[in-house]
């Protein structure tokens, strides 16, 4: 099995977000593998261990993503590829990223491509399905279970809490939902081994792409923080009176009931 994982480096979920110069301030912030992509990496490793083959983790980003790619290798992926767009691209969007990834993947004969269903920073959830469509393969998003049997696959998809059991065949792209598995922590021997595993770096040139080919279709014109919420009103007095007051406030002041 020829398995690929699409991975994004993102802000740590615990980080406080601040803005400087119209952009999200990244100074001193911790970066991690996008949590949904961790499920994707874990699933890829499990599918490989059960069926044989190789797991390649691919990321579009800057050389700083090498750290997260090494972590993926330490978890057990076989190879990593960084498509470094630092020198070529100012602002990309999901069109850009999907086009770059599919250009890289188009001649790789992938049997299975796994991505996270959404990145916790941008939150679009577009890149997986876009890549599948460009490659002409089918996809299932937000999956919580994957069973591969030869060239066919049974997938459980989370649909706003309900589950769909879906039958399909390879090649296939799936995007991981929480609950798919429990991602492993890299072991010490895994970390040692990861240092010797291949981590290739490509640029747009290597994919025969120009900046114009991947020019974004959308543009961010402003980033801002939500207005800070004023401290709420903590009620006082006898519990019964507090409850009465709360219902009155919700009815007459907030007017939500």
């Amino acid at each position: 099995m020829n398995i690929y994982v699409l991975m994004k480096r993102t802000f740590d979920t615990e980080e406080k977000i601040t803005i400087s110069g119209g952009k999200i301030n990244e100074d001193g912030a911790e970066f991690i593998i996008n949590p949904y992509d961790e499920y994707a990496i874990e699933e890829a490793i499990q599918v490989r261990d059960a069926n044989g083959g190789e797991v390649t983790v691919v990321s579009v980003g800057t050389e700083e993503a090498e750290k997260q790619l090494r972590t993926a290798l330490a978890m057990g992926a076989d190879k990593a590829v960084l498509i470094n767009t630092e020198d070529d691209l100012e602002d990309g969007d999901q069109y850009t990223t999907a086009k770059i990834l599919s250009e890289y993947l188009k001649d790789k004969d992938a049997d299975l491509i796994i991505a996270g269903n959404v990145a916790i920073d941008g939150g679009s959830g577009q890149v997986g399905p876009r890549v599948a469509e460009i490659l002409g393969i089918s996809y299932v998003t937000t999956i919580t279970k994957l069973d591969i049997n030869g060239s066919s696959a049974t997938v459980v998809r989370d649909v706003e809490g309900d589950s769909e059991v879906i039958e399909t065949s390879l090649p296939l792209l799936v995007t991981a939902q929480q609950g798919l598995n429990e991602p492993r922590y890299p072991s010490l021997p895994g970390i040692m081994k990861a240092k010797k595993k291949p981590l290739d770096e490509l640029e747009l040139d290597d994919l025969d792409l120009d900046e114009d080919d991947v020019e974004a279709k959308t543009k961010t014109i402003e980033i801002y923080l939500p207005p800070k919420k004023e401290a709420g009103k903590v009620l006082e007095g006898e519990l019964e009176d507090q409850v009465k007051e709360l219902v009155k406030l919700l009815h007459t002041e907030a007017k939500v009931v």
């Binding site: 802000f11 979920t13 406080k16 977000i17 803005i19 999200i24 916790i120 920073d121 941008g122 939150g123 020019e215 974004a216 279709k217 959308t218 543009k219 961010t220 014109i221 402003e222 980033i223 801002y224 923080l225 939500p226």
Partner: peptide, 23 residues
């Protein structure tokens, strides 16, 4: 002169305003 779309990013910890530049 643009249609401006507002959307949450970073799980709602920030917002961005976006426009379509092509198509």
């Amino acid at each position: 002169g643009n249609l401006v779309f507002t959307r949450p990013i970073y799980s709602g910890k920030a917002f961005e305003k976006k426009i379509v530049t092509d198509g």
